[in-house]
Structures are given as C-alpha cells and as structure tokens.
C-alpha cells in the first residue's frame, strides 16, 4: 500500500502572551492510500491543527510533512488534497452553484467539467433545490453538505475533513458516510476529525487518539478495543426465564456482563418518520 501521508517529528507551537503553547508535540505518522482514518480527542487536543498543517495552512514549528511525496505547501497539492474546515462557508452571498463554480475555477477545472460535477454533487447531496438562495441562508447541515461537495469537486487524492457531520441530521450524516466509503473504495485517502464516536467506529479503518497535542493511541478498532466477543440478544422472555438463561450461561462457563431492557434505536424511528409524508404536504 502506497504512503499517502507521511509525518516525521511534526511539532506546532503557538506564541501567546503567556508564553509558548505546544499544540502538537513531536509526532510521527504514516498513512496509506485508500484508507479512512479518524482523529479523536477532546477539544484543544490538536486535531484541527494537525489537519491545517496537512492542508498547508499552518507552517509547523519543526518536523517534516509530506503528502503524495510532496511538501505540504507544494502548490500542486491544492487540487490533489482537499480540506473541508469546520464552520461556515465563505462568500455567503453566492448561491450553491455559484460557489461551486468559483471553487472549480480556482482549482483550474474546465467550466463544463466543473459544472457537470457540481450538478452531480448537488443532486447527490440533495441541494439541487436550493436554487439561487444565498449560501449564508442555508442551515448548518446544508452548508456542511455543500462544503463536502466543494471539497470533492476537484476529485482529490487526499480528503481532510474537520467535523464533517456536525450539524447534519442522521440521514444526511448517513449520506455523507456512504459517500466517504465510496471515495475510499475508489482509492481516496480520508482523514477526518470528529467527536461522533459511533460514526468513527462505523466508518474508519484506523483511529488516531490525540490528547494535549500528543498521540496517545493509534491503530485499527480491533487493535484498540480488543477482539469482538460473540453476544446473545434475546426477545420475548419474562424475568424468570431470563434468570434461568443466565444461570445456564454461567454453568456453561460464560460470563453474564449485564441484562437490560432495550428499545428500538432512535435512528430507526427518525428514518421511519422522515420517510412518511407530512399530512397535507407531498413528500
């Protein structure tokens, strides 16, 4: 597997009035192509700083960063590496097609190619109905989807995402996850910082855990969480029958960790309601 991202002894510190603050302590990383890597960590742990360094927006204090065998600030990477920062989009008085046309032009795409790709992504991300509306009037979820469309417009080899699903509804989140899976399958390397642990667990091949600018853990989910244990979920037994089942399991040498009453997941309810037409309104 080819190396997409290579980081050696990367350190970033910021000067403040109180002195120097280390945002990233010396860090070494090698990430292969076509993988989805999640970055986890509490606020201020250095996730965004790492992404900004990789995007060429932040010059490291020390260390060496290479993406696709090029230095991070190499102009050629502008198109090969896409970065979707967290927060609102710029140029909020443009419409979604105008914004994507601008991004395409800046990436050097031919107009026809740019427009075709923009149209496709707007439809895929369900933004085609936004029409001439200003981007700044979009909900945060719509802005997130448009941001992803903009990041994917140049068909980059590496995609850096900062909180790609924050503000998205579960369905939108699911669409984004599906797109990321497809792009990774097509060979794109994706590095995403997120606080949504379930999503990271669901999609990422590998996880980095940062804390206070230090890489505390790194590996696949299996490496980090241990081997998956087989478990039994039953339905339709009363309390006494459940007690008997537990005793039987213990007798067989198993360990009963907990018994609990479980409802349907909220996600199932949400998906069901979202697919039902609202009375008086066509779906």
């Amino acid at each position: 597997m080819a190396t997409a991202i290579s980081v050696q002894q990367l350190a970033v510190s910021f000067r403040t009035r109180q002195g120097s603050v280390a945002a990233l302590q010396p860090l070494d990383l090698e990430l292969g192509a076509g993988r989805i890597v999640g970055i986890l960590g509490p606020n201020g742990s250095g996730k965004t700083t790492l992404l900004r360094v990789l995007a060429g927006l932040q010059t490291p204090t020390s260390g060496r960063v290479q993406l696709l065998d090029r230095q991070a600030n190499d102009p050629a990477l502008r198109r090969l590496v896409a970065f979707q920062p967290d927060g609102p989009l710029p140029l909020g008085v443009l419409s979604a097609p105008e914004f994507l046309a601008y991004v395409g032009a800046q990436l050097g795409l031919p107009n026809a190619v740019s427009d075709a790709r923009a149209q496709a992504w707007l439809e895929r991300l369900e933004l085609q109905h936004a029409g001439r509306r200003w981007v700044r009037t979009f909900s945060s979820g719509m802005q997130k989807r448009l941001a992803l469309a903009a990041a994917l417009l140049g068909e980059p080899s590496i995609l850096l995402l900062d909180e790609p699903t924050s503000g998205l509804d579960p369905i939108g989140s699911g669409v984004v996850m599906q797109i990321l899976r497809e792009r990774a399958a097509a060979g794109m390397t994706i590095l995403m910082a997120s606080h949504h642990l379930l999503e990271v667990e669901e999609i990422c091949d590998e996880v980095l855990v940062l804390q206070g600018g230090v890489l505390r853990a790194r590996g696949t989910l299996a490496e980090l969480l241990g081997t998956d244990a087989d478990s039994l979920v039953v339905r339709g037994l009363d309390h006494d029958q459940l007690q008997q089942l537990a005793q039987a399991a213990t007798a067989l040498g198993g360990e009963v960790l907990r018994t609990e009453r479980q409802r349907d997941h909220l996600f199932a309810l949400f998906r069901r309601l979202a697919n039902e037409p609202v009375r008086g309104q066509p779906k």
Partner: peptide, 19 residues
C-alpha cells in the same frame, strides 16, 4: 472577502483556493 480581516469564518477555504 473574508481574507480582508483576520479570523473571519471561512477564510481557510479561500487561503487554500486562491493563489
């Protein structure tokens, strides 16, 4: 134009896109 002032939302986009 967000880059005409520091710390404006969305400026990272333009810093990467604009030569």
């Amino acid at each position: 134009w967000p880059l005409l002032a520091a710390r404006r939302p969305g400026s990272d986009w333009l810093r990467r896109l604009q030569r």
